[in-house]
Write a protein that binds this DNA or RNA. Structure first.
Lengths: 181, 181
DNA sequence: CAATTTATTAATCACTGCTCAATTTATCTA
DNA sequence: TAGATAAATTGAGCAGTGATTAATAAATTG
């Protein structure tokens, strides 16, 4: 219930509008109860964001393997764009929420990130045929993921430098394919 | 005085530790005075961050043109790394501070961003010889800048996926050069 | 000197995350 | 069923936050 309410608030008004009292108020409880459920707000948001990443993975991975290999990465980029545009505030929460200084990433969150990396690796395997180039691939995937998130940051700051989110992601994918083909 | 004090706080304890009362307390004033100087905290932080961007530009641009053209972009990437590592909290403030919903970017801030873009264009001009490819270049610069910021985000989340900041930026620059050569 | 303008204060408001003793509700046992 | 134990829930309270504003203090005028 708490997580559902939290997601509702984020979807409607963004992560900035999320507060513990709003969450509990929405489900007919008071603030104290929330801290029986979660250690702190960080944990609540981390669970919320893990759910968003799971939804992104589900959306990106459906029927992906049926496509021809060459276009899989482009499809992945396009689907990422579509998901983020369909869930702007939830994605904003994933990208911009700042955890406390001493926060350590939970396993369930790391799992979702890992799963997304796996999806990217799966679509780029043909660029890295031999086994010893797997480190190269991992580094490239990290680069692609970094760029993806960076592009979102710039594209969502409205100043419209560099074109739309879709255009920029398309450009990134093409740049990568040009360099690795 | 206020901006200096604010920078001190950010340098020492990070943007999360910045508050209006801390700033004014440090210079022997009280909170009310701060709102005579700045409309709100957004304006204070924006001026602070503009100063950081100006310092980055100064550091990146010195003696850059004396180097051979082919290595200028690599140098730029390396200097970015050095600056960010030397000023982690100030750069974190630039990257992670979230302005209010209705905040519009000030001219002095846009100027600093534009100046950095100019520096990048200057080092990549040889990839875009004819005039009609200038739009391509602008889009590529936005992509590079986006990726740079994204890399910082991933590299600074300590989980050390994808290597160090320096390694990832080097990889980005190489990828770009590979694709555009 | 007196009037006016400017600078500064500190109380106040509505929030936030978080804690914890007290209370209520639910479950289990004799 | 009655009583004891356990679990769930409350809400006041703390220490902060950004922002406002009437009152006060200081500086600058004519």
């Amino acid at each position: 219930m708490a997580l559902d309410a939290a997601r509702e608030i984020v979807v409607q008004d963004g992560i900035q509008a999320l507060s513990g009292r709003k969450v509990t108020g929405r489900i007919g409880y008071t603030i104290g109860t929330l801290y029986q459920l979660f250690e702190d707000m960080d944990e609540l948001v981390e669970r919320l964001n893990a759910g968003t990443l799971a939804a992104l993975h589900a959306f990106c991975s459906e029927n992906l393997e049926t496509r021809n290999v060459a276009d899989q990465l482009k499809t992945l980029g396009l689907r990422f764009t579509q998901f983020v545009q369909a869930h702007p505030n939830e994605w904003d929460a994933v990208m911009t929420y700042r955890y406390k200084e001493d926060h350590v990433t939970s396993d369930f969150y790391a799992f979702e990130i890992q799963r997304l990396f796996g999806l990217m690796e799966q679509t780029t395997d043909h660029f890295y045929p031999d086994q010893q180039s797997k480190d190269e691939q991992a580094a490239d995937m990290a680069l692609l993921w970094s760029s993806l998130t960076g592009i979102w940051g710039v594209a969502s700051s409205e100043r419209q430098v560099g074109g739309t989110l879709e255009q920029m992601i398309e450009r990134l994918v093409k740049l990568y394919i040009d360099a690795r083909s």
